[in-house]
Computed example of a mutant assay.
Amino acid sequence: MSVRLYPEDPRRVGPYELYGRLGDGRMGALFHGRSADGRQVALRTVRPEFSADPLFPERLARETSALRRIDGPLLAPLLDVRLDVDPFCLVSAYLPGPSLAEALGRHGPWPEETVRSLGVSLAQGLVNLHDRGLAHRDLTPKNVVLTGDGPHLVDFGLAGVFDAGSQSAFGVPMGTLPFLPPELLSGKGGPGAAGDVFALGALLVHAAGGSPFGADRSSAVLRRVLHEDPALAPLSRPLRAVIGACLAKEPADRPNLRELHTALASAGRLTQRRLPEKVAELVLSRAPGPRPDPSDGPERLAAFRHRYEQVVAAGHPDEAPRAMVELGALEARAGNLDTATGWLERAAATGHPHHAPLARERLRHLPGGRHRHP
């Protein structure tokens, strides 16, 4: 979920206007922004310690050239890489939905059948990557975004761009414990499809409410990934066998993605209707939706009112002001001018660069002189 920009954050990078912060990581900060043509984007700035490396621009250009050609229904494509701005940045399509990490943090573990559906969808997305000779390399709950038409993989392949010279105090390569496979941690193997299968297994245990090797970045977690069996307690015995195989220490002992998909496929692909109820509401609150028509009847208008109020309650810094403006227009058409004024004044008070001016403009044109903003 996007939060307001920090005082030290840039407001613009090259042609991209920034108006929210989506997160932070070892690669750099991730922002919610807008391109010059109005398209919403997710923009990651590159940390100075990477861009200061004289070899980094060439490596970035080489590694991301393949990523820019990748597209698919479960992937958020890389749209742009800018080496002519300070800081360097990578720009991807923006997905209006919560991450899996946020959904689990807000509403807790998922039922097993939903976990199976999640596995089916993510396996499909990974097959799309692997068939093109790429691996995700950092598959974690924060890199899965939930939308109405299913989960999407984000930041795929980027760990390879930043891996050189980026070892942690424990010698851990770029990625996230406990989702890194043993072969990467031991230095006995490189990233690849089998490593993504391991990460997917750990992610599915996490979605079910478990943690196969622990949840922090300590040396104890590192030791457990390398030498101990995973903890699979939240899973039933049949699913424990399937996901446990993904977490095998040796890459050759793990199933391939098509085998995993077959083992999980009875649950079907994950869509909004298969999500846990509270998570489905969270996804719906972030989704851009159809606009009400003046000819809509009372029941349909009530449905739109409820939808917009859900978006406001979710508090997204871009979508909430938009929903307030829409609620103002909806109530004005219904003749509820005092309520309309209240929503538009709330939208104006957010200071949003697009929706606040629009709210003030609509206040000026409310019937009956009910505006209070000049």
Rank of each mutant, 00 (worst) to 15 (best):
R11A: 10
Y19N: 06
G20E: 02
G20Y: 00
G23S: 11
R26C: 05
G28A: 13
L30V: 15
H32V: 01
G33A: 02
S35K: 09
Q40L: 15
A42L: 00
R44C: 10
R47E: 15
P48F: 03
F50C: 06
S51H: 05
L55Y: 07
R59N: 12
A61N: 03
D71C: 05
P73Y: 02
A76C: 12
P77K: 08
L79Q: 14
R82G: 07
C89F: 08
A93Q: 14
L95P: 00
P98R: 00
L104Q: 02
P111L: 00
T114F: 04
R116W: 06
V120R: 07
S121A: 13
G125P: 07
L129Q: 06
H130S: 03
L134C: 11
R137N: 15
D138Q: 11
L139D: 06
P141G: 09
G148D: 05
H152S: 13
V154E: 01
G157L: 10
A159W: 12
V161E: 12
D163I: 04
S166K: 08
Q167M: 13
S168N: 01
A169D: 12
A169Q: 09
M174T: 15
F179E: 06
E183Q: 14
L185V: 13
L185D: 10
L185I: 14
P191Q: 11
A194G: 03
V205D: 09
R224V: 01
L226E: 08
H227M: 05
A233I: 08
L235K: 01
S236K: 04
R237Y: 12
P238N: 07
P238A: 13
P238H: 08
A252K: 10
R254T: 11
T262D: 06
A265K: 08
A265E: 14
S266N: 09
A267Y: 06
G268Q: 10
R269I: 05
T271G: 11
P276K: 00
P276T: 00
V279R: 01
A280G: 05
A280I: 01
L284G: 10
E299F: 03
R300F: 03
L301M: 12
A303S: 11
F304K: 04
H306E: 15
Q310G: 13
A313C: 02
P317Q: 03
G328R: 12
A329Y: 07
A329L: 15
L330Q: 06
L330F: 03
L330K: 02
A332L: 14
A332N: 09
W343C: 01
A347P: 04
A356T: 09
L358Q: 15
R364G: 15
R364F: 09
G369V: 03
R372P: 01
